[in-house]
């Protein structure tokens, strides 16, 4: 029964990791930008959920609807006004730019919200459900289902909508997409906006489970990075696979080697993947 509990914990955590990583993966895959501001977007989303709940008593699952458009606009403008100017420069330039932007946003959050840990406490608390002896906390369950729903929406968007097809086209071959009449700059901005929206929504959902502080942003960014490398860039299914693999390794590693070594194990796995399978679990070779 203990094994079942570990498995359930890992699946739940894996979906949350996928949710953290998917926006990051989209931006990296489509724009070839390693977006270092992603972690801070997640934290900002968490503060939004915290603020809305404490001030207006809006539950976090409704706050997703507020966060998505807000962060989309923020990301869209950021790409249009700043990142598009250096998008064709070597990857180090965009990396430095997003690093700088992250420093600004993170320090602004420390300034306005302080670095103290806050916790969104739902009243009454949601409790847990147990099937046989396997226990799942309801807040994690809601976050997991919402995370899956978000990834589903993104999947449909990329598959079925015109904009989505254009994003995929730009991802596959930028020059060919231009020749087909795709407005690449606008697609870049939309993709970055979507990435930001997903980060904001992930933050809202994480607020249900984890404490909120600007200091947690690097932790989220690190997880997103590992998930992308494990799962493969730019694809929805890759992020899910990477998230699940990471959570499983952490869960099993924590059980057999102790929780202090869970992170070490996940980074060893990252190195192994970088050497042996740099395209990730579901990525295509040569595309990375």
């Amino acid at each position: 029964m203990h094994a079942a509990q570990i498995l359930v914990n890992a699946v739940v955590l894996g979906c949350l990791y996928a949710c953290i990583a998917i926006g990051f993966s989209l931006v990296w895959g489509v724009l070839n930008v390693i977006n270092l501001i992603h972690g801070s977007f997640i934290v900002l989303g968490a503060y939004l959920a915290f603020g809305l709940y404490n001030a207006l008593h809006i539950s976090p699952w409704y706050s997703v609807a507020v966060a998505a458009p807000l962060f989309f606009v923020l990301g869209y403008l950021l790409q249009r006004l700043l990142l598009n100017r250096v998008i064709t420069a070597p990857v180090l330039v965009t990396l430095t730019l997003t690093f700088g932007l992250d420093l600004i946003l993170n320090n602004a959050m420390i300034y306005f919200f302080k670095a103290d840990y806050r916790k969104l406490m739902l009243t009454p608390s949601l409790g847990s459900v147990s099937i046989f002896d396997v226990v799942v906390p309801v807040d994690r369950l809601i976050a997991t289902v919402s995370a899956l729903a978000l990834t589903g929406v993104l999947y449909l968007l990329l598959r079925r909508s015109r904009v989505g097809r254009a994003i995929v086209a730009v991802r596959l071959d930028r020059d060919a997409a231009v020749l087909m009449g795709v407005d690449v700059k606008s697609i870049y901005a939309i993709a970055f906006g979507l990435g930001a929206a997903l980060a904001g929504c992930a933050g809202v959902l994480m607020a249900l489970i984890f404490p909120i502080s600007p200091l947690t942003s690097s932790g989220y960014l690190g997880k997103a990075f590992v998930v992308c490398v494990l799962g493969g860039l730019g694809s929805v299914s890759g992020a899910l696979a990477g998230g699940l693999l990471l959570a499983l390794v952490e869960g099993i590693g924590s059980t057999f080697f102790g929780p202090a070594h869970a992170t070490t194990l996940s980074f060893i796995l990252l190195i192994i993947f970088l050497i042996l399978r740099p395209q990730g679990l579901l990525g295509r070779k040569g595309f990375e």
Binding site: M1, L13, P211, E250, G251, P259, A260, A262
Partner: peptide, 20 residues
């Protein structure tokens, strides 16, 4: 007897094991 890293946010694996 186990340690958790500073900054750990998810203790579910360790706690499940303790419970078992």
């Amino acid at each position: 007897f186990e340690k958790y890293a500073i900054g750990t946010l998810d203790h579910s694996a360790a706690l499940s094991q303790i419970k078992s």
